[in-house]
Every structure is written in structure tokens, then in C-alpha cells.
Amino acid sequence: MYIPFDQLPPHARLWIYQASRPFTEAEQAEIKPMLERFASEWSSHGTGLQASATLLHHQFLVLANNESATSASGCSIDSSVNFVRELERQFGISLFDRTRLAFLQNDEVQLVPLSQLKDKVSAGEIRENSLYFDTLVNNLGELQSAWPRPAGNSWLSKYF
């Protein structure tokens, strides 16, 4: 069962997929109904999930489920991964590359290869207060209150 993203409870579980490039306006217009359709049909062992999906900052695909109503099972998570892989294929974009980190700089998402992180920190280009899109955020409340968050308040704190 589809629930509008902003109507899910704060404890709703999230899966965040970072795109290798921004989605164009045309792609977003095409993807949004696909997301709603997937969330409407997403189920766990035959029981519909109270789910939603959205695109954020033109760069992130977010799937969500109200786990207190029905938990996502391994099979339902597999179906979501298959859905995301199909979006990758259809739009020629990577959504599973975890080797690039996303920061908000000058109101735009900037991707930084993980291999360059130490150098960028040393050069002062990335600081503790640089806003980081932590894809490890796992519930809606955290997304709404601390996303993006200062890099120093994430797993990146060890670099400062």
C-alpha cells in the first residue's frame, strides 16, 4: 500500500540509493510514477507493505517502509533490489556504487571518490562541518532531522 513519503512515521525504515549522476527533470518525471507503482505493489509474504519511495536532491532514490505495520522480508528486499537494478538499466545510471561520497556544496550535490577523501580533508576542501549525505541513515526521523549532516557527526569523523 502506497503512503505519501511525508506521511510515514519517523521510525519508518529507509533504503537510500545514491545515483552516479543527477537525475534529469525528464527522468524524474518518468521515474516518480514508477516509484509510486512499486511502493503500491511492494509486499512481504503476500501482505502489502505500508511503503513509499521518493527522489531527493535529484541524486538519491529513497525507499521506505513502515516496519511497525509489516516488516520487509528477505524476499521483499530482494524485489526492491531488483526494481532498483531495473531502474539502473533503464536510465543508464549506477545506484549501487558505494565508492563515492556525496556532499552538499554551494547548494549542489558533489560526489567525491572515497580514494580522494583523505587528500580533500588534508587540503581543507572537506571539513568536519561539511554537509554529508550519509546513505547509512536508516529511518525517516533521522533523514528529516539530520540529512545531510556535518561530516564530523557521521562515520567520517575518523578522518578529522
Results as ranks from 00 to 15, higher is better:
Phe23Thr: 02
Gln18Val: 07
Lys158Trp: 02
Arg37Lys: 13
Pro113Ala: 14
Leu49Cys: 04
Ser40Cys: 08
Gln28Phe: 01
Trp147Leu: 12
Pro33Thr: 12
Glu88Val: 00
Pro150Gln: 05
Gly152Asn: 02
Ala29Pro: 01
Thr24His: 02
Val109Gln: 07
Leu111Cys: 03
Gln50Glu: 08
Phe91Ser: 02
Arg100Ile: 00
Leu111Ser: 06
Leu117Thr: 07
Leu56Cys: 01
Glu128Ala: 15
Trp147His: 10
Leu61Thr: 04
Met34Ser: 11
Gln90Ile: 03
Arg85Cys: 00
Ala19Leu: 02
Glu128Pro: 09
Ser145Ala: 14
Leu56Thr: 00
Leu111Asn: 01
Trp147Asn: 09
Gly74Val: 11
Phe38Pro: 11
Pro10Cys: 03
Thr24Val: 05
Gln144Asp: 11
Ser122Lys: 13
Ile31Ser: 08
Ala51His: 08
Asn129Phe: 04
Ile31Met: 11
Ser145Asn: 12
Asn153Asp: 14
Phe133Met: 14
Ala102Ile: 04
Pro10Leu: 08
Phe23Ser: 05
Asn153Lys: 14
Asp107Thr: 07
Glu27Tyr: 05
His57Asp: 09
Leu87Thr: 05
Gly92Arg: 04
Phe83Thr: 13
Ala12Gly: 10
Gln116Pro: 03
Tyr159Cys: 08
Leu140Arg: 15
Ile3Met: 08
Ser115Cys: 08
Glu128Thr: 11
